[in-house]
């Protein structure tokens, strides 16, 4: 066999190796991104958070500093979710999509559909009247990492959530000053591994009435106020977290009181790309109907 091998094959192999090395070298030096897929899906499971009812990633009710999508710092990630809530007198459905860029910037869109059911008739809107809202949001991670780095440095992000109620005439008729508004959030989130505990604190400047579904501010009180969102989660396994959240809210409208909201949730990463969340949610009084609490189910796909 050895004699039959043409000598030129050796030199060809050599040229090939050299050229291949040169290509590899060029690749690695000139274009460091060439080995990186657009969607790398490399994030640790659950560290992309759960889409909130306002579209931004978080814990379902509270916005967290997490960035949506399963990307790491060299790729982009995408995610989509759908959420349903059954309240005592109302029905809620929301869905949305997000893009995470380099685990640094999150862009999200969500649509909220709030079904007044029989309460709609009592409120003079007509049975089954639906309030709708679009929310466009951007979030930027400023520092830290949810999991890595010092346990004392949380992941910190700033967010802006522009909300547009699609029921301008009605929300103004019930006393809102505006049909659109913008919330500003600052969040700090950390997984305290030594305790298997996820902690989040968010400060929100907002003048939204019922998340914005009933417009923004009131003639007497148009300005934003500082509200707080806190979340605690306990990791039972790498794929299951149970926890609770609390969110304070302004009460701007004269005709109806607005309460703080809270929930108890269990989130299960069914796979790397799918997270199922079930929660007990309580938003208190909504448009004069008290005791609005019930079950939330949310499904999120992320890549």
């Amino acid at each position: 066999m050895k004699e039959l091998r043409p000598a030129s094959l050796h030199s060809l192999g050599r040229v090939c190796r050299k050229t291949a090395s040169a290509i590899l070298l060029t690749c690695a030096v000139a274009s460091p991104a060439c080995a990186d897929p657009l969607l790398d899906g490399g994030k640790l499971v659950l560290t992309n958070g759960i889409s909130t009812i306002e579209g931004a990633s978080g814990g379902g009710l509270a916005a967290w500093s997490t960035i949506a999508g399963m990307e790491t710092d060299r790729a982009i990630g995408i995610s989509g979710h759908v959420t349903g809530i059954e309240l005592a007198d109302y029905g809620w459905q929301s869905h949305g999509v997000s893009i995470g860029v380099h685990d640094r910037v999150e862009l999200s869109y969500a649509r909220q559909n709030f079904d007044t059911r029989k309460a709609g008739a009592a409120l003079g809107l007509g049975e089954g009247y639906r309030f709708n809202q679009d929310i466009f949001a951007v979030k930027v991670r400023l520092a830290g990492d949810v999991v890595y780095g010092s346990a004392l440095l949380p992941q910190i992000s700033l967010g802006m959530h522009h909300k547009r109620s699609l029921d301008g005439a009605i929300v103004k008729a019930v006393g809102a000053r505006s049909a659109s508004g913008t919330d500003f959030t600052a969040s700090a989130t950390k997984l305290i591994l030594s305790r298997s505990l996820l902690v989040n604190a968010t400060a929100r400047l907002t003048n939204a009435n019922q998340f914005g579904l009933l417009g923004f501010g009131s003639p007497l009180n148009a300005s934003r106020s500082l509200q707080f969102e806190g979340s605690l989660g306990w990791m039972l396994s790498p794929r299951v977290v149970v926890g609770g959240e609390y969110r304070t809210r302004p009460s701007n409208l004269a005709f109806a009181r607005e309460d703080d909201a809270h929930d108890l949730f269990v989130a299960w990463a069914v796979s790397r790309n799918a997270t199922l969340t079930a929660a007990y949610a309580d938003v208190g009084s909504v448009a004069t109907f008290d005791g609005q609490r019930g079950a939330l189910v949310s499904l999120q796909f992320a890549f």
């Binding site: 994030k43 640790l44 710092d73």
Partner: peptide, 11 residues
């Protein structure tokens, strides 16, 4: 090593 590599290693 990239962040994604480290995450894979942690898993």
């Amino acid at each position: 090593v990239t962040r994604a590599d480290l995450n894979a290693l942690v898993e």
